[in-house]
Amino acid sequence: MSILVDPTPQQAPADAHAEASSPRGPRDSRLSRTGAMLVMGVFTVYFLVPLWWLLVASSKTPGDVFTTNPLWFADMRLGENLGELFAFRDGLYLRWLGNSVLYAGLGGAVATLIAGMAGYALAKYRFRGRETIFNIVLGGVLVPATALALPLFLLFSKIELTNTFWAVFLPSIVSPFGVYLTRIFAAASVPDEILEAARLDGSGEMRTFFTMSLRLMSPALVTVFLFQFVTIWNNFFLPLIMLRDQSLFPVTFGLYGWNTQLNQIPELRTYVLVGALVSIVPLIVTFLSLQRFWRNGLGAGAVK
């Protein structure tokens, strides 16, 4: 987690004369700075071009996608395309989007809470088997989620929960990596003295956790939430195996299904393109809106 050890002070590079007035650190040579900017610029372009292509392609008619310049607009039809997508099959796409938000948002939140509690307990309480439990959880980090999908399917079949909301939601609220991260963070950022003071003042353990520790741990929790949100949002294999009912699909799986039908129904191509564009919006919104908490927390820790 490089963000946790990043020593750069938060308020430093805001002013225009950053180069001259940088308060600390070695003075950058113009050459290395240009080189760094160049590398970053190349990578930015590299990452943004596909997004740009997606935006441009989403604004075209199906025919124009092949015949016009792939990186520039032809007829601007983004509005109509969006309207058609949202109206297609009684708004099936919106339903998928809602499902994804529910799986990823709620799943991410619950996963973060559970991971936070587990990590906190592992960091702050001494009990028999603590290290064993932690090591087992760490082992969980190493097992790819894809490898667990089929066993999970067979388990869920036994309790007749396949093809339900729970089939995707329940496996999503487990985050071994979150437990690991929150444990490390709680150990470093929640001082034992504060906990003792709280206990002396008569605060119960639960109250201490929810009113104090949780806030102290918030940068780690935001990180865990973001990771888990993205993981669930992009989790494709589990819904593929678990779900049959279209109304339960998350947006990734739904779009994939449409994409496999392009040979039969070529009109779906536009919907797949526009749908893919819309489906990344929630991710961007989540990142941009949570980034603030993320940085604030880090900054607060760094200048303490």
């Binding site: 049959r244 299904g257 994409n259 039908q261």
Partner: peptide, 12 residues
């Protein structure tokens, strides 16, 4: 119930 085409996952 509709999903991806056969070799796209439905057969499996």
């Amino acid at each position: 119930q509709t999903g991806p085409n056969g070799n796209g996952g439905t057969y499996q």
